[in-house]
């Protein structure tokens, strides 16, 4: 499928805010599986500071691939991503790693905590990578765990926590370095509906109170209530942009 086909009207996905913190410019990602498959096809996107954007769409529509490109975990075949003025195409692997550790927070479906480290140590980890002084990072990690309601369980190992609690630790870890944007890939995909609601509310709270920018890939509608925009993807393209309930 050509990336030029079925493009959104110019500016549809980029119209939200005047000062985008994260932009995708003609982003393309293809895989060769007997034939060339475009997982992300000519995506243009601008996400403003403090915006809460949900990306939704059927399985295989390219949501997670888009997220990995936005997070600098993967390289596009063409196009570029600009985060806080930094063009990914100008960075090597080390440069992207530096961006990830200082400007991006990740939240995953399977929580992906380091299972031999306590909740506190998991939250401390990205701050250690960023070279934040020990005392300062300890204070911040404890504060974040308090904010997600796990202050009393900071010394528990992930396997001693429920799924929802693990995801809350993952949220605290993602926020540790005060990133420009938090990218969440199906954060409630492994949680029951009640816990999903709690996680959704937690996202909304950090977005409202801290002005934290969120890009959430999710099937679940639990996030729609908190989103400014909802982007619908199909066959690697953003085919529709809806106003979220906060939009």
């Amino acid at each position: 499928m050509s990336p030029a086909v079925s493009r959104l009207p110019e500016g549809a996905a980029t119209a939200a805010l005047a000062e985008p913190v994260l932009r995708a410019v003609h982003l393309n990602k293809a895989f060769y599986l007997g034939e060339t498959i475009y997982a992300v096809s000519d995506v243009n996107l601008a996400i403003g500071q403090g915006e809460f954007v949900v990306v939704t769409g059927p399985s295989g529509s390219g949501k997670s691939t888009l997220l990995s490109l936005l997070g600098g975990l993967d390289r596009p075949i063409s196009g570029d991503v600009i985060l806080d003025g930094h063009r990914y195409s100008r960075f090597n692997e080390n440069g992207l790693a530096n961006l990830r550790r200082t400007k991006i927070g990740f939240i995953f479906q399977f929580f992906n905590l380091i299972h031999h480290l306590s909740a506190l140590e998991n939250v401390l980890l990205p701050m250690s990578f960023a070279g934040i002084p020990r005392r300062q990072r300890l204070e911040r990690a404890e504060e974040l765990l308090d904010l997600v309601g796990l202050g009393q369980r900071r010394h528990h190992l992930p396997l001693q926590l429920s799924g929802g609690e693990q995801q809350r630790v993952a949220i605290a870890r993602a926020l540790a370095n005060q990133p420009k944007v938090v990218l969440a890939d199906e954060p409630t995909g492994n949680l029951d509906s009640k816990t999903s609601e709690e996680v959704g509310r937690l996202f909304a709270r950090f977005n409202r109170e801290l002005g934290q920018t969120f890009v959430v890939v999710s099937h679940a509608e639990v996030f729609h209530a908190h989103a400014h925009r909802v982007l619908h993807m199909h066959d690697g393209r953003i085919v529709r942009v809806d106003q979220g309930q906060r939009g």
């Binding site: 790693a97 530096n98 990830r100 550790r101 990740f106 995953f108």
Partner: peptide, 8 residues
Amino acid sequence: VLKAVGAK
């Protein structure tokens, strides 16, 4: 995970 949170 380590790479995702910034390990080179």
